[in-house]
């Protein structure tokens, strides 16, 4: 009996420590890692979240902070019920317990070190002491992977953090930096949309794209609804229409749907973070 009471008190304490979802407004905050501008991110995700809300019956509300780091901090502060991110596989954040529900269909992302097509730079080693743009110091493909490559080859560069991926690419485009560490997909999309020609100096192994993850306090039933809504979006004419419109807005070559995903699918992330030489600023 004493044991039962202690367990109940511990559960209540634990439950009290976690944020209660839905929030006061009756919605489940859904955070999106800042990969593009705030407006573009909102224009892309708002229709998708309305659809998933309607299909799943779980009211989602987009929640973004000014930077990716701040968005990750929101999640870390338990203010987000769901998050679309790959920042939660570092040793410390992995312990937060976010669970993978789904991911965007695709071969995965790769970290790249790119330069402008007409740049004289030919190898990553040529970047020594050069300014290299990154989205932020937390991005997997856009920072950790390319920086890990540089550090392991002993190449010391001057990192410039632009706030998000496209901002870093924009800096490369206007010549403020000689190279950029980027997510290969975002880079390709950016190049297609703005007509920027670039050259890849390094490319990593593929890592699955960002995952839709649920806060550990969100009930499984809710998670399953969310997972099913995301996974069935491409097959549903209404969902497909939304995805096509979203792809057109970003000038993607084809619409990207969502597929079911699980925690084990992101084990290579975890392995990377255990062996990287890049300092991890985990809070």
């Amino acid at each position: 009996m004493k044991t039962i009471l202690l367990t109940l008190l511990l559960w209540l304490n634990t439950a009290g420590a976690w944020a209660a979802f839905p929030d006061a407004a009756g919605t489940y905050p859904f955070g999106v890692l800042n990969q593009r501008s705030l407006t573009l991110t909102a224009e892309y995700w708002n229709p998708i979240l309305r659809y998933v809300s309607a299909k799943s019956g779980v009211p989602l509300a987009l929640r973004i902070a000014r930077t990716a780091n701040e968005t990750t901090d929101l999640a870390a502060r338990d203010e987000l019920a769901f998050v679309y991110s790959n920042h939660f596989f570092t040793p410390k954040r992995d312990k937060l317990g976010f669970r993978v529900l789904a991911r965007q269909d695709g071969e995965g992302i790769r970290g790249q070190i790119v330069v402008a097509d007409d740049s004289p730079t030919r190898t990553p080693e040529n970047l020594a002491s050069q300014a290299v743009a990154f989205a932020n110091p937390y991005g997997m493909a856009g920072y950790f992977v390319p920086m890990d490559r540089l550090l392991k080859s002993g190449t010391s560069v001057l990192p410039v953090f632009a706030g998000n991926q496209e901002a870093a690419m924009a800096m490369l485009k206007v010549g403020k930096v000689v190279a950029a560490g980027v997510n290969n997909q975002v880079m390709a999309d950016f190049s297609r949309r703005v007509g920027f020609r670039y050259r890849v100096l390094y490319e990593s192994e593929p890592y699955l794209d960002l995952a839709v993850m649920a806060h550990p306090s969100v009930p499984d039933a809710v998670n399953e609804k969310i997972r099913a809504a995301f996974a069935g979006m491409m097959a549903d004419p209404e969902g497909r229409t939304l995805l096509v419109a979203a792809a057109d807005m970003l000038k993607l070559d084809k619409p990207r749907g969502f597929v079911l995903a699980y925690d084990r699918d992101y084990d290579n992330y975890r392995r990377f973070f255990h062996h990287t030489q890049v300092p991890l600023d985990e809070q």
Partner: peptide, 9 residues
């Protein structure tokens, strides 16, 4: 106002 509105700043 768009960015500030999105992040409710």
């Amino acid at each position: 106002l768009t960015d500030a509105v999105i992040i409710q700043d």
